[in-house]
Structures are given as structure tokens and as C-alpha cells.
Design a binder for these strands. Structure first.
Length: 418
DNA sequence: TCTGGGGTCCTAGGACCC
DNA sequence: TCTGGGGTCCTAGGACCC
């Protein structure tokens, strides 16, 4: 069995630990620049303050209900997280720290999972003051479902989901949008096909799920049916990506102020990189304008370089970032109109012709359009994307509506080899 | 007026190799 | 008349997570 421990309303609970007078009072925690609500106590949830809501929209509710408002204090949350995780680690054979407030634990071989869950919950609240919920089931995704129901049982806070009947009942009462791995896009798509509950989802044809939601969707489905596809990772590898980003409180149009931000972001990135003991092969800079501002055009500037020699040197990273910034600013941020991607990226809707070596040359020399028509006829599409290898096997498979022939990144769940 | 920050994985095409 | 194919790496972009 796998257990998922999840701290309840983690940031809000952390703040409450240090201000006991706030017990049973509504609390919210805000993002950078105090822009959005990123954590809410149960009381704040019941008032109707929504997750991610901009503060100015929730202001009325906040004032009327005398909600206690905090800016983020990540040093505090990180420290509290370490304490919680170390307690859980002491009581469980194997643990995967999944996020600042969640951990998966391997409960295989445990006689009474429910009892151990209750003990953990008790120990954590006594030693840290943070309430946690624990869901226990056969797979990670089912443990997430179990946790969903553990949260609703405020008395016990532990839920073991083990019989098929019980699982089906729970999945029937759970909207598909609440499933781990189903975000707003997939939820909307699934709803449009009449798939409303998690149970509707597991009843879908596997090939349909694969086609619409890639291998990720199929894994969710298998996990919900009790077939484990996502194992516990107790030995996390180095980060594959390190990012420092901030929103500006106000609109910025001067290169100089962008440069200052980019430099300090780059320094911070280099710090994180050295902490990890890693090296950077690749640096990229992205600048966007406010997507919510309907009055201005939306700009998205992107530029990246690869280092010949991977580095963790602050100077290298900062100067690379500054150079990238300059080229974006000059090329894109000032001139380009909404939605245009700046940098070295080629627009998606291109018609690139490169069918067969000899034909390609002839086509370029003679008449590009007729060759495009020819390809369209062959593959029966209006828009042509043909690679340098001509119509590859990948394309042929696609035309026959078979699965893609990628294999290297797929696990044993589904091996489609051509 | 004011809308977060830091990550992951998968897909697909292009370049290139043998 | 015929058009190799299997593999890796790179990269952008789209989905997701907390």
C-alpha cells in the first residue's frame, strides 16, 4: 500500500502555529507583490475566497469577514516542512518528499495501515502544530483519491481505500477535474464528451484515452484501476531546470530596469545551481507583458543559448542572460505585436518543404506550390509539415491513426514498437 | 490601479550519425 | 522504376503539479 500525507492548508497552518490566537479565524497568504491568494484556511475557504484569486477581487470579502492576511514567508514554510518530513521519515520505511507539503510513503508490509496513519497524524500535530491528512491505497493516484476523502473527515483525517466496491463508490462521487493529472484543459475536454466523474473516466476506452491525453492519461487510468505505473522515488535526482522569475508590480519599459532584474535573477539562479552541485548547459531569458491587460498588445520575448562548456560560474550566467535580454529587447519587446514569439523560433504554421532529396531540389527550382499540392494529395492534409526525412514512418502511422512509434521515453505500460 | 513562482513529463520535428 | 531505417540529441510547446 502507498500512503500520501498532505499538510492541510499548509502556509496558512504555518502562520497559525506562530499566532495561536488565529485558531478558527480566517487566514489567507498572498503571493509576491501581494498579488494573488495562494493559501487559505478552512474558514477563508468557506467564506468563498478562491484559490489564485487576485486580492483586489477578494478585497470586499476580506474586509467584511476580518480575514487575517499574510505575505509569504518561505523561510518559515521551508523550515516547518523539514520538521514535518523528518517526523514522517522516522515513522515510515521509505518516503518520497513530493512537494513542500506532501510526501508519499511505502506502506507495503504494514499490518494496520489505518492505525499507523492515525499515529503519524497525531505525532506531527503534537510536535509541529501542523494538521495533516493521510490517504492510503494501492497506487499513488488512488492514494491521492483517498487523501481527497481523508481531508473531508476532519475527525480522523486518515482514509484507507482498498476494496473495489469502495473505490468505485468514491470515484463515482468524485468529479474528473479533481483527479491528480487532470487539469483544467483535460477536464474541459472530458466534460465535453460527457465524462463527468472519475468513474466515467476509468470506463473510457484505453486507446481513446491514449489518443486524447497521451501516455500520461493512460497511466492515470491504469493507476485508478489499481495497476501501479508511478513508483515511489525515494532518491530524487538533480534538478533538470532551475528558474527564477518575478512579476513586476508596474509596467516596465526601460532596458536598464529590466537589466537590473535580469542580473539579480541570474545571480540567484547561479546560486541555486551551485547549491545543487550542477552545471548549466543552457540559459534562456523570457520576458512577457501582462497577459491580463487587454489594452496593450501582448509581448512574449524568448531567447536562449547553449554553453560550449557547461558552467556554474555566476559571471558567465549573468553576462549570458544580459546579452540575451538585449537581443530580445531590441528585436521583440518593443516592436512585435500580440502573440508573436520572438527569437529564433519559427512560426508553427509554416509549410516547409523538404520531401525527398531530388524532388525537393527540383521543387524548389521549379514550383514550390505544385509540390505542396502533391504532398497534400499523398497524405490527405491541408497543411504540410514534412521533415528532411520525407514522409517518415511516424507520419505513415499517424495517417492510419495508429499510436506514435516513440518508444524510448515510454515505460513498460505500453510498448508500441514499429 | 492591482492577477505567483518553481518545477515536471511528453510530443514532435529537425539535425545528424552509421 | 526505385526514394533506408534505426537511433540519439536538441528544442519548443503544451499539458500538468503544488
Amino acid at each position: 500500500m502507498i500512503a500520501l500525507a498532505d499538510c492541510n492548508n499548509f502556509y496558512a497552518s504555518c502562520e497559525r502555529v506562530f499566532s495561536p490566537a488565529l485558531k478558527n479565524k480566517p487566514i489567507i497568504v498572498l503571493s509576491n507583490n501581494d498579488g494573488c491568494v495562494i493559501a487559505r484556511s478552512n474558514e477563508a475557504k468557506s467564506i468563498g475566497i478562491r484559490m489564485g484569486e487576485p486580492v483586489f477581487k477578494a478585497r470586499k470579502l476580506i474586509i467584511e469577514n476580518k480575514v487575517n492576511v499574510f505575505s509569504t514567508n518561505f523561510a518559515l514554510y521551508g523550515d516547518m516542512s523539514k520538521r514535518v518530513m523528518s517526523l514522517l521519515d522516522n515513522m515510515s520505511p521509505d518516503i518520497e518528499i513530493y512537494s513542500i507539503d506532501e510526501a508519499f510513503m511505502d506502506f507495503s508490509g504494514i499490518q494496520d495501515c489505518f492505525k499507523l496513519g492515525l499515529e503519524m497524524r497525531d505525532v506531527v500535530i503534537r510536535h509541529t502544530g501542523i494538521p495533516i491528512s493521510i490517504g492510503i491505497a494501492k497506487t499513488k493516484t488512488l492514494a491521492k483519491v483517498a487523501n481527497h476523502f481523508a481531508k473531508r473527515d476532519t475527525k480522523k483525517g486518515v482514509y484507507v481505500l482498498d476494496s473495489v466496491n469502495q473505490i468505485n463508490t468514491m470515484l463515482k462521487s468524485m468529479p474528473v477535474s479533481k483527479l491528480w493529472g487532470v487539469g483544467s484543459r483535460y477536464a474541459r475536454m472530458l466534460n465535453s464528451y460527457g465524462v463527468k466523474s472519475a468513474f466515467d473516466f476509468i470506463s473510457l476506452d484505453e486507446n481513446w484515452v491514449l489518443e486524447k491525453m497521451t501516455i500520461m492519461g493512460l497511466k492515470i487510468q491504469h493507476e485508478l484501476k489499481g495497476k501501479s505505473c508511478i513508483s515511489i522515488d525515494t532518491n530524487p535526482s538533480l534538478k533538470k531546470n532551475i528558474c527564477t522569475s518575478r512579476s513586476f508590480g508596474v509596467k516596465v519599459t526601460e532596458l536598464q530596469s529590466l537589466k537590473e532584474s535580469i542580473s539579480s535573477h541570474a545571480v540567484r539562479c547561479a546560486e541555486k545551481l551551485r547549491q545543487e552541485g550542477g552545471c548549466a548547459r543552457y540559459v534562456s531569458v523570457i520576458i512577457k507583458t501582462n497577459p491580463f491587460n487587454k489594452l496593450d498588445d501582448y509581448y512574449y520575448g524568448y531567447k536562449a543559448i547553449s554553453f560550449n562548456t557547461p558552467t556554474n560560474d555566476t559571471i558567465d550566467i549573468v553576462s549570458a542572460a544580459e546579452n540575451l535580454l538585449k537581443s530580445i529587447y531590441k528585436k521583440g519587446l518593443v516592436y512585435k505585436k500580440s502573440g508573436v514569439i520572438v527569437g529564433d523560433i519559427i512560426p508553427q504554421d509554416r509549410v516547409q518543404l523538404n520531401m525527398f532529396d531530388t524532388d525537393q531540389k527540383r521543387a524548389k527550382r521549379d514550383n514550390l506550390n505544385s509540390a505542396v499540392d502533391l504532398i497534400n494529395q499523398i497524405i490527405g492534409r491541408n497543411t504540410v509539415h514534412i521533415g528532411s526525412q520525407g514522409i517518415s514512418r511516424k507520419w505513415q502511422l499517424k495517417r492510419e491513426k495508429l499510436s506514435p512509434c516513440y518508444t524510448t521515453k515510454w515505460n513498460d505500460l505500453l510498448r508500441v514498437r514499429c
